[in-house]
Amino acid sequence: MQTVANIAVLVAIYALIGSGYVLIYRVSRVLNLAQGELMMLVAYLLFSLATLFGGHPASALAGAVLLSLLVGLVLYVVLMRRMTGELVIAAVLVTIALGILLRGLMVLVWTGQMARPLEKLGWQNSPLALGHGVALSSVAVTTIFVAIAIYVGLFVFFRYTAWGVRMRAVGENPLLAAQRGIKLHVAYAMAWALATFSGGCAGMLLALDSGLDGTMAIIGLKAFPVVLVGGLDSLRGAIVGALIVASAEVLAIQLIDPLVSDVVPFVVLIAMLAVRPWGLFGTEEDIQRV
């Protein structure tokens, strides 16, 4: 039972990080490899805000969420907007370079030491007994609920709101969308803001659960196979991908050898690339093939 709970937590983490990749890719066809650094940045922002508003955890959290949206927006307006129309690989490289830049800046501002935003917020990460001998930390339980809430929110947004539909249209065919009067830059900027927000949530929750240091960026990269398995342009795919990768990882730890768990995601990834390169739920037409 505990194993199932562990899988659920990891699925929630991976799905949240993965949603960041998917949102940007789906709308703008750019693979954002700075996702790990962005989630780390948001987590650090939360840490600083928590230090500032020691007594008001709610305002610190709200501030961090707002800042995460703002960071995504600013990044698009200042940087990624200029890459529209350039080669896809050039845009991807910009995100890699952005990652390097952000990591340098974060070391500069926050040093490489372990930061613990939870303590600054004045909260306790007390364990919750869930019955049947299953226990999880309160932050871990929160992570699961946040992931569900964000995914439900995203589905509703894309299905029922005007801007959601517009963003889907932009993702499918930017030219036609633009001709229908949809403002491409607004749609792209929104995708970046939302992606930074949902990835940032993963970063904040991870930081609240077990602290924050320079390795968080690599965790972002570890979630990368998740979205490839599920399909880069499908939110549903990100959930299924997270489920597959997280289960494989946790079961490898539990049943085989913990050492295997590190390579498992990439083995799944290679198998998927060989069989269905566009992923389980990805759009097949979309893939560039000879």
């Binding site: 562990n6 937590v9 871990a140 077990s210 390795t215 730890i253 539990q254």
Partner: peptide
């Protein structure tokens, strides 16, 4: 003997195995 890779998102699976 459990062995966690350098960046691990969640240590609970390792802890579970030790506890169980």
């Amino acid at each position: 003997h459990e062995s966690a890779p350098p960046p691990t998102a969640n240590y609970t699976p390792y802890a579970t195995k030790l506890k169980e």
